[in-house]
Simulated assay, not measured.
Amino acid sequence: MAGEFGCWARLDADPPEHLDPWVTARLDRLHELSRRTVDRLRGDAVAHTDVRADNLLVQPDGRVRVIDWPWASRGAPWFDAASLLIDVRAVGEVDLAAQLPRIEALGATREDVLAVVAGLGGFLLDAARRPPVPGLPTLRAFQRSRGEAAVALLRELWPD
């Protein structure tokens, strides 16, 4: 995730035209937060690294199956739970007060959660401005929407 969590530097060097002023004022801090957490992402748990609604199948009995594993790796047991907050925020409100203790119970600190949201948010905003991918006409809009959801979470969590 070191490359993905380094995208705030690219956004700082070449900011998109409509970058949120709240983000612009914190680019250096977002980059630093994202980078210093990379080592905390190490672990021996199986990490999906791309958990989002379209990679989850809810069975009639309520159990959830996670599908589409091309980015699976070993990592921190809390990474997927922290990253899922972005997708949940993108489709509606998320009650962070209820979710943070659950993620912390997996071994994350609040800074870890903030850093995952920051790291992935920078990656998504940077990726959204790339040229369209043939055969995936909605990918860039999807990435932008998830990047904006990450910014919304950061605004709520940021310890200013």
Results as ranks from 00 to 15, higher is better:
Leu100Trp: 08
Arg110Asn: 10
Ala97Arg: 09
Thr109Lys: 02
Arg110Ile: 12
Val113Asn: 02
Ala105Leu: 06
Leu124Glu: 15
Glu93Arg: 14
Ala118Tyr: 02
Ala98Val: 12
Arg110Val: 13
Leu106Thr: 01
Gln99Trp: 14
Leu100Ile: 14
Leu114Ala: 06
Leu106Val: 04
Arg110Gln: 15
Leu106Glu: 00
Gly119Met: 06
Leu124Gln: 13
Ala97Asn: 10
Val94Gln: 08
Ala98Met: 12
Val117Trp: 05
Ala98Pro: 07
Ala115His: 02
Val113Arg: 01
Gly121Tyr: 05
Ala98Trp: 10
Glu93Trp: 09
Ala98Ser: 13
Asp112His: 03
Val94Thr: 09
Phe123Met: 15
Glu111His: 07
Gly122Ala: 07
Pro101Met: 08
Val116Gln: 02
Ala108Tyr: 00
Glu111Ala: 06
Leu96Ser: 10
Ile103Arg: 00
Pro101Leu: 04
Leu106Gly: 01
Leu124His: 13
Val116Pro: 02
Asp95His: 10
Asp95Cys: 10
Arg110Ser: 15
Leu100Lys: 03
Leu120Phe: 11
Leu124Arg: 15
Glu104Gln: 14
Glu104Pro: 11
Thr109Arg: 01
Gly107Ile: 01
Thr109Met: 06
Ala97Glu: 15
Ala98Leu: 15
Pro101His: 05
Ala97Tyr: 05
Gly119Asn: 06
Arg110Leu: 12
Ile103Gly: 00
Glu93Ala: 11
Ala108Gln: 01
